[in-house]
Design a binder for these strands. Structure first.
Length: 225
DNA sequence: CAGATGCACCCTCTTACATCA
DNA sequence: ATTGATGTAAGAGGGTGCATC
């Protein structure tokens, strides 16, 4: 294993030198040494309490750990980058799980709606049958007058009980109004579709705070709450 | 006071090296 | 012994805020 010595903690400026074989800065030979476990441990604990160091603190830490202030600054810089990267991975996992959950609920609701459509269609059929039978009887009775008038009553005279249930066939705005309390039914399915598929909207989300549930016990995606 | 300059710090991406399976 | 993958210290480039002239 690699043994860390005080000598290795010397400024890398002396260890960073151009080789005899190349003059390009990108091909500099770096006598790169990893920090000791103790140094890492100390830096980690400081990072936990503060992800950025005050200049004075940086000097102090560098002195304590036998590092150059620049090394401490770079360590914190790299640490922030690594932490952010991990955080992104975590956020992505959470988002993925929530998306899957939402998609499953959407599918479930879709099936439920289908079942209700079928059920309602059956009810409509049941309602229409006696109506049509009644019409036939009325028409037969009126035909003897020969005036050509029809006694089939309008919807308004029939009242609600005589109206067929047409929510599902989208041909009865009154029921929709009753149900939704507005003239026009919001297009729920398209709303769901949009929210599930519009990548443009998703891009506008900042990762910061999106998953912060500390202020609220119920995240926005939780239907059950 | 506005603009130019230098400095320190940051972020992001990349490179070079150490380490390990 | 070799090699590819991975982790990480440091370089490079570009942006920003601040002090100074």
């Amino acid at each position: 294993m690699f043994e860390y010595t005080e000598e290795m903690a010397e400024p890398f400026s002396s260890a960073t030198e151009v080789t005899a074989t190349t003059t390009t800065t990108t091909k500099m030979k770096k006598n790169k040494r990893r920090f000791s476990d103790e140094q890492i441990k100390s830096l980690e604990s400081m990072f936990e309490s503060e992800t950025r160091l005050e200049p004075r603190m940086k000097l102090q830490v560098a002195k304590e750990l036998g590092l150059q202030p620049r090394q401490v600054a770079i360590w914190f810089q790299n640490k922030r980058a690594r932490w952010k990267s991990k955080q992104l991975e975590r956020d992505y996992s959470i988002l993925q799980a929530n998306h899957d959950n939402l998609a499953a609920k959407y599918e479930s609701l879709k099936k439920e709606k289908q079942a209700l459509v079928i059920q309602l269609q059956k009810l409509n059929d049941l309602i229409k049958k006696p109506e049509e039978e009644g019409k036939q009887v009325t028409a037969t009775n009126c035909n003897d007058g020969g005036k050509g008038e029809t006694t089939v009553k309008s919807d308004s005279s029939m009242g609600r009980s005589g109206r067929s249930l047409g929510v599902l066939s989208d041909d009865d705005s009154t029921i929709k109004t009753d149900y939704f309390g507005v003239e026009e039914e919001p297009n729920l399915m398209s709303m769901v579709d949009d929210s599930l598929t519009s990548r443009e909207d998703w891009r506008s989300f900042e990762s910061d705070g999106l998953f912060d549930q500390s202020n609220c016990g119920h995240p926005w995606w939780d239907f059950c709450s």
